[in-house]
């Protein structure tokens, strides 16, 4: 029985396997429409996250399974003081797999060591959100046809953005990757990420505050929202929130094949006019996320389906 708490628990081979499964689901959805019949996914969301919850639920329904759960702590036994460990033990009696979102960092890990069914971390505070990283990797692979030999720019809040840290860690295991880190000085990538991931793995990177200057170099631009909830100080948030706005004009500077990703929700960091640009991949990213969650649920439930051989182009 296996859980997924941190993206680095999956080897590169396992990531490739999940992406191959997701591709096959996209190509042949009918083949997968019944593979989870009789199985139940419990979505335990101790803080609201409509998008992630709906994605997990849609994923399970499309596999022919069922879903139960709650979408905020107030409607769970946590409001009565039940521990995460006890909740995990109880829900293990009802469901075959658990997806947990919790505001406290490490809560899904506590659930995984107490549950008797697999636990998927659906986001724990500012810590990990591995299924977002699965979606990001699949999006890049689909849009560019590869996960190697490219320059990936991250723009916005690189300090608090957990999706940025996880994707940097995951991509650092592929060859020929260069990173360009674009942020205000106050929201630079934390030292420990720089040292533990980039320096340790000898991944080339550069830091800048100027998006337009580096835009022509990028194969991927990962935009992020400046998250109000990560600031203790409203003034600081207001000062930094409009630091970077990607517009249709700026997109003229970028490569023809660049992919723009965003973990969503966006506020104003990508102008709506960019949505029509074929390089805007962020809504397709939502779709890829669902297929990757389907592939992950199958993997953790040990459901194997033979993947159709791809036809040679």
């Amino acid at each position: 029985m296996r859980s997924l708490i941190d993206i680095l628990e999956l080897s590169v081979e396992e990531l490739d396997g999940l992406m191959n499964t997701a591709d096959d689901i996209m190509a042949n959805p009918a083949k997968y429409s019944d593979v989870c019949r009789g199985k139940k996914l419990a979505t335990l969301f101790f803080e609201p996250s409509t998008r992630t919850r709906l994605s997990f639920e849609a994923a399970m329904y499309e596999l022919g399974g069922n879903v139960l759960g709650f979408s905020e702590a107030a409607s769970s036994s946590a409001s009565k003081g039940e521990s995460v460990a006890d909740t995990a033990k109880v829900v293990s009696c009802y469901a075959d797999i658990i997806a947990m979102r919790h505001p406290k960092e490490g809560a899904p890990y506590v659930a995984s060591i107490n549950a008797s069914v697999p636990v998927i971390n659906a986001g724990d505070g500012g810590h990990n959100h591995p299924t977002q990283t699965l979606a990001d990797l699949e999006t890049i692979r689909h849009e560019l046809g590869r996960l190697t030999d490219m320059t990936v720019g991250f723009c916005g809040d690189l300090k608090f953005g957990r999706t940025v840290h996880s994707l940097i860690a995951a991509l650092s295991r592929y060859t020929g990757i260069k990173f360009v880190l674009i942020s205000p000085v106050e929201l630079r990538l934390p030292d420990y990420v720089r040292r533990d991931i980039l320096v340790t793995n000898r991944v080339p990177y550069k830091e800048t505050t100027d998006l337009e200057a580096v835009l022509p170099e990028l194969d991927v631009l990962y935009m992020t929202r400046i998250q109000k909830e990560r600031f203790f100080n409203e003034e600081e948030y207001l000062r930094l929130k409009d630091s970077y706005i990607l517009t249709a004009d700026k997109m003229k500077l970028a490569k023809e094949k660049m992919a723009v990703l965003h973990p969503l929700p966006r506020v104003n960091e990508i102008s709506v006019a960019v949505d029509k640009d074929p390089r805007a991949a962020y809504f397709r990213q939502v779709l890829y996320a669902k297929y990757m969650r389907m592939a992950l649920i199958m993997k953790l439930l040990d459901i194997a389906v033979e993947i159709d051989a791809k036809e040679e182009a």
Binding site: V84, A85, K104, E105, G106, V110, D124, G125, H127
Partner: peptide
């Protein structure tokens, strides 16, 4: 923001992450 702040009965467990620099990391967060 660590789960140990709200779940008082959880043991505080740290694992050695870097022997050279003597750095330990919380197993939860």
């Amino acid at each position: 923001r660590c789960i140990t702040t709200t779940e008082q009965e959880l043991p505080h467990i740290f694992r050695l992450a870097d022997r050279h620099d003597g750095i330990y990391r919380c197993i939860y967060c």
